[in-house]
């Protein structure tokens, strides 16, 4: 009896951690390449959920939402990077925090204005409804799907960063963008591409988590701080760090409520502060260790 409880919680932790990766990867890649702390990343995630909500209500097809919403978020992210973050390269990186915080405020207002402040939900597609019997316990099918998609995306991205030409340019730009520029690659375009990629992933996470959990204007603020904690714990700019950090926080979120409900959030921030104090660059905070 105790065993299946623990096993179920552990699976929940893995699932929460892996879905968080979708959000944190964008955040950490963008920081690693451009030194930009993107406060609007949570808002992009939120927009993914709301776009998904609208696409589902218009087309009635969840799979269409899964495809269209992240692309729309990617487009929007690209526009934000192009027209507002670009002009600030070369300024103190603190200005990027300040700028993207402005977007977070604006998008929160916009979402509340368009979709209202109430809690909504994207309905689960019929194909993924129901739950699966996993010997010890049963688990919702959709959440297993969520886990599978997250793992697949994380692994594919890892391979792409390691192996593909674009991945090599990305890592090189993170290491020394001036040199990459001098060698004939337009680094600014690489930056835009990475920002779009991060936005698409955030949008994807928005549709997925908007289906398994809830959609409301507060979701941006609640995820962005968690995502910050994760990338700080893992090491700003490190891909591996974002994955490991998300895993740790996922486990904390899963087991915390059982063992110390009042301290779960406090533990997250304590962990973040402790890592910053002991190892300011984070667990994997080496820019080359992508």
């Amino acid at each position: 009896m105790v065993l299946d409880g623990i096993a179920k919680t552990a699976l929940l932790g893995v699932e929460m951690g892996m879905t968080l990766v979708l959000v944190t990867v964008g955040l950490t890649l963008i920081f690693g390449m451009m030194d930009v702390i993107n406060f609007a990343h949570g808002s992009l995630y939120m927009l993914g959920a709301y776009f998904g909500l609208t696409v589902v209500s218009v087309t009635g097809n969840w799979w269409a939402a899964l495809l269209i919403a992240p692309l729309l978020v990617g487009l929007l992210g690209g526009l934000i990077e192009y027209f507002s973050i670009r002009p600030l390269y070369g300024r103190n990186p603190l200005y990027h925090i300040l700028l993207t915080f402005g977007f977070a405020i604006m998008l929160h207002g916009l979402v509340t204005e368009i979709w209202g402040g109430q809690v909504q939900n994207i309905s689960t597609p019929a194909l993924l409804d129901g739950s699966v019997d996993l010997v010890l316990f049963s688990y919702p099918l959709f959440r297993l799907f969520l886990l599978g998609v997250s793992i697949a995306v994380t692994a594919a991205l890892w391979l792409a960063i390691r192996q593909s030409d674009f991945g090599i340019v990305m890592r090189a730009s993170a290491h020394d963008s001036e040199m990459v520029n001098a060698l004939g690659t337009d680094v600014k375009r690489v930056f835009t591409a990475v920002f779009v990629l991060g936005s698409v992933l955030a949008g994807l996470a928005g549709v997925l988590l908007g289906t398994s959990q809830a959609v409301d204007p507060g979701m941006a603020a609640s995820i962005i701080i968690q995502a910050f904690a994760i990338v700080v714990i893992g090491g700003l700019g490190s891909y591996r760090g974002a994955v490991v950090g998300a895993f740790i926080v996922g486990m904390l979120n899963a087991f915390g409520p059982t063992f110390a409900p009042q301290f779960t959030d406090a533990l997250l921030y304590l962990l973040m502060a402790a890592v910053l104090l002991v190892k300011p660059a984070g667990l994997f905070g080496n820019p080359e260790a992508t």
Partner: peptide
């Protein structure tokens, strides 16, 4: 605790500590 961190890291540390106070008040620890 925070001043030895610089720039973005200082911002993140102060954010973490402030959120710690928030959760302390929220959960009435």
């Amino acid at each position: 605790l925070s001043v030895s961190a610089r720039g973005i890291y200082f911002a993140m540390l102060t954010l973490a500590f402030a959120q710690l106070f928030y959760t302390i008040a929220f959960n009435d620890i």
